[in-house]
Simulated scan of single mutants.
Amino acid sequence: MALPALQEAGIAPELLSHPSARVTERQFAMLYRALAVRCDDEMPRLFSRPLRPGALKFTCLSLLEARNLYTAMHRWSIFHRLLHEDFRLDVRREGSRAVVALAEPASRPPNKPMALELMLKLVHGVASWLIDRRIQLLGVDFSFAPPPWAAEYDILYPGPVSYGMGRTALHMDASYMDQPIRRTRSELPDFLRRAPEDWLFVPFKEARLEHRLREYAAGQLPQSITGEDAAQALHLSVRTLHRRLAAEGTSLQSVKDQLRRDLAIQRLTGSQDAIAAIAAQLGFDGPASFHRAFKAWTGSTPGMYRITPPLRR
């Protein structure tokens, strides 16, 4: 089951043995859809009871006629109880905050971290879609310890992330709950057709310096940037630039490396450009130095990402 799904998504199966390997958002979404079809489960075998195809559609239909987001989330909590018992969807206001929690019964084994992550992203993505606004998060709680991929949460869940909490939950400003539902039934088919992109990769406009720096560095390629260049472009002193990046748990070099890694993977999987051309586009002085850097970033060679030709749909 897994091998055909990987091939359909354009992912070389050998990458599964490399902990540092990466896939694009498009590849992940294609893999997710392929597994959902093969498993007959919209949350591919992540919970004790499958969510049969159509569960998301009829959930959303039950929410579209709600007066505001709070009413929609309350309806979802009721609808969810009809689907499975792995957790309870709990929606409440706590002062100036609104909290949407996945409360797990103590009598059941804990859910897998990835199951809770994806369900939380589904709640966040659907809620943002319903009110046609990107809901900015004040914080995220997870009931489990930090997983090996916890660093990725800075992108998936902008805002403070806490682990080992009594519940898995999203925190947002309570005013979002008063927002009216702006989507209509006619818009639902497009939303479902693009699933899971539209709920998994909800875009943000964060104030994190790391993301501003990454956007600036991308615009300068193939030239590299220095700390002086970046500081001037971002209207900071060099010292402040490095201090704030350190406070965010990163550095100038890490941001540049991660940017070039991600762009390399996108171009290797999404284009037929020669590896030498990609190396030049990313500012490397030749294919050899690109190969060395890529192997250090991902644990594999650039050619491994070319084993399955990019799909064109």
Results as ranks from 00 to 15, higher is better:
Ala2Glu: 14
Ala2Thr: 12
Pro4His: 10
Leu6Cys: 02
Gln7Trp: 10
Gly10Arg: 09
Gly10Cys: 06
Leu16Val: 09
Leu16Trp: 03
Ser17Ile: 00
Pro19Thr: 10
Ser20Gln: 15
Ser20Ala: 15
Ala21Lys: 07
Thr24Lys: 05
Arg26Glu: 14
Gln27Met: 08
Met30Lys: 08
Leu31Asp: 01
Arg33Glu: 05
Arg38Thr: 09
Glu42Ile: 11
Arg45Glu: 05
Arg45Cys: 09
Leu46Phe: 12
Phe47Lys: 07
Pro50Ile: 07
Leu51Arg: 10
Leu51Asp: 05
Pro53His: 11
Leu56Glu: 04
Lys57Gly: 01
Ser62Cys: 01
Leu63Phe: 06
Leu64Glu: 04
Glu65Ser: 15
Leu69Gln: 06
Thr71Gln: 14
Trp76Lys: 13
His80Lys: 10
His84Arg: 06
Asp86Ile: 02
Asp90Arg: 15
Val91Phe: 14
Arg97Thr: 05
Val99Lys: 07
Val100Leu: 13
Ala103Ser: 06
Pro105Asn: 05
Ser107Ile: 03
Asn111Cys: 15
Lys112Arg: 15
Met114Leu: 15
Leu118Gly: 11
Leu118Met: 14
Leu120Met: 13
Val126Asp: 00
Leu137Lys: 07
Gly139Trp: 13
Val140His: 11
Val140Lys: 14
Asp141Ile: 00
Ser143Ala: 14
Ser143Arg: 11
Ser143Val: 04
Phe144Asn: 03
Pro146Asn: 09
Pro148Leu: 10
Trp149Ile: 01
Ala150Met: 01
Ala150Thr: 02
Pro158Ser: 10
Pro160Glu: 09
Pro160Cys: 02
Gly164Asn: 02
Leu170Trp: 08
His171Lys: 12
Met172Lys: 05
Ala174Cys: 12
Tyr176Glu: 09
Asp178Cys: 00
Pro180Trp: 12
Pro180Asp: 08
Pro180Thr: 10
Ser186His: 08
Glu187Thr: 03
Phe191Ile: 04
Leu192Pro: 09
Arg193Pro: 00
Arg193Ile: 00
Arg193Gly: 04
Glu197Ser: 12
Leu200Met: 15
Phe201Ala: 03
Val202Ile: 13
Val202Asp: 05
Pro203Asn: 08
Ala207Asp: 14
Arg208Gly: 04
Arg208Ile: 01
Leu209Ala: 10
His211Asn: 11
Arg212Met: 06
Leu221Asp: 07
Pro222Asn: 07
Ile225Arg: 10
Glu228Lys: 14
Ala230His: 04
Ala230Asp: 02
Ala231Gln: 04
Leu234Lys: 10
Leu234Glu: 07
His235Tyr: 11
Ser237Lys: 11
Arg239Gly: 01
Leu241Ser: 06
Leu241Val: 08
Arg243Thr: 09
Arg243Asp: 05
Thr250Ser: 12
Thr250Ala: 07
Ser251Arg: 13
Ser251Thr: 15
Ser254Pro: 00
Val255Gly: 04
Val255Glu: 02
Gln258Ile: 06
Arg260Phe: 09
Arg261Lys: 14
Leu263Glu: 07
Leu263Gly: 00
Ala264Arg: 07
Gly270Leu: 05
Ser271Val: 04
Ile275Asp: 02
Ile278Lys: 02
Asp285Thr: 13
Asp285Met: 04
Asp285Tyr: 08
Ser289Ala: 14
Phe290Glu: 01
Arg292Ser: 13
Ala293His: 13
Ser300Tyr: 01
Thr301Ser: 15
Gly303Tyr: 11
Gly303Ile: 03
Gly303Cys: 00
Met304Cys: 03
Tyr305Asp: 08
Arg306Met: 10
Thr308Ser: 02
Thr308Ile: 15
Pro309Phe: 03
Pro309Asp: 03
Pro309Gly: 00
Leu311Phe: 03
Arg313Thr: 11
